[in-house]
Nucleic acid binder design. Sequence first.
RNA 1: GGAGAGGUGGCGGAGUGGUCGAUCGCGCCGGUCUCGAAAACCGGAGUACCUGCAAGGGUACCGUGGGUUCGAAUCCCACCCUCUCCGCCA
Length: 430
Amino acid sequence: MHDIRAIRENPAAFDAALARRGLSPLSSELLAIDEARRALIKQAEDAKAAQNALSKEAGQAKAKGDEAEFVRIREEVSRRKAVEGGLLEQANAEDLRLKAALEVIPNLPLDEVPEGKDEDDNVEIRQWGTPRAFDFQPVEHFDIAGVKPGMDFNTAAKLSGARFVVLKGAVTRVHRALAQFMLDTHVNEHELEETWTPVLVKSEAMYGTGNLPKFAEDSYKTTNDWWLVPTAEVTLTNTVAGDIIDGADLPIRMTAHTQCFRSEAGSAGKDTSGMLRQHQFEKVEMVTICTPETALAEHDRMTRCAETILEKLGLPYRTIVLCTGDMGFGSQKTHDMEVWLPGQNRYREISSCSTCGQFQARRMNARYRAGSGAKPDFVATLNGSGLAVGRCLIAVLENGQQADGSVELPAVLHPYLGGKTRISAEGKLV
RNA sequence: GGAGAGGUGGCGGAGUGGUCGAUCGCGCCGGUCUCGAAAACCGGAGUACCUGCAAGGGUACCGUGGGUUCGAAUCCCACCCUCUCCGCCA
């Protein structure tokens, strides 16, 4: 959500930033609503003030026992009431109109974000690791002999339809090990606080992170109006909704391992084979709540947390800055990490770390107080995947595949696998 | 799911129609006293919005949304949440 006062102070800057996102100017339209709104508020509140004063006089007349005066005032107020009520209603309507206009406008990119139209204009900022040289033709994860027995799309289709998977045996164990490894690393080495949250949330929570009202069709809703979270960003970020946090308690750095649910509306035909794009998947999420001044430093820190996981797993990746045209709705700046998938012979997104500045905080009314007596200000919020577990499983399997159909597993996972080091071509953990 | 109790400012807790944005206690901030602290005493302090150069003024907020009334924290209705007991259950 944008601050209308900031737009009022510098409409040109607002429009210029929108233009960088490829959007038409909106400030004059917004300011027109704002002016009408403020004029109506003034009128309505002045009328209300006059009425309040009269009511007080009525009380005093009553107390003095001046019945005639009391009746006179009471009737006077009664007469004015309709007018005043109408004004209040109009002011309210105009207020809602402004809110409705503001809440669907995406966040503005920071100046340092490269300008661009779509994903082709994203800018690589670093690469880590070298894609392995294979002496055979590497295949996609679902075609690896040792993986096949443990990754069953047909059974999942029977249960749930397309874009679901049933995992079995060794593959499941590796999947679980990955999540555990990520959480342990974040908690023990990155000092993130392990958190466990609901995955069913109220509309307010979805609104707070910006998933509503604009992107309702991307998520699922239950019959009693809960939403299934598309990411733990929703729950972790909203833990501070409505709060005024003591500045000394910032930053708050959290991590959680949850199921995520996405309708994938609009991705029809994209990534239809394998478990790259599912309606239900697991993700270890990171969320940081901090002061606006520290947000960029925290963003780099969070990015490093995600990169560290990939490095420890020995998975080659590159980190890119999304250009203005490719950023998500709530983001001011986004780093994507793309992992090398030899089966596809390309890098694919495995993590996305964004700073939202005060954009989400304003929607959630999440504030902090710098010191005692200081005025509350909105916090900054950041979120990032650390990492998508399912996609990480794919990367581990594809990068570790051998000519005979077996899979060598990263050393850091061995302790989580009871000392086993590979999946045999027959699909056994050995 | 059934029965009951309750949701008031950072916390506790008054307040059942009129000057209540709200008594009081604790905590917090400033000051006096003190070498310093504690105690005691004095003073201060909510949030958002509108208006104003400012000082200030105004509106709203006592779980949420409606309603009654000249006037609502107080009355009425609906909903949400918490707690206790019972039932059911991973």
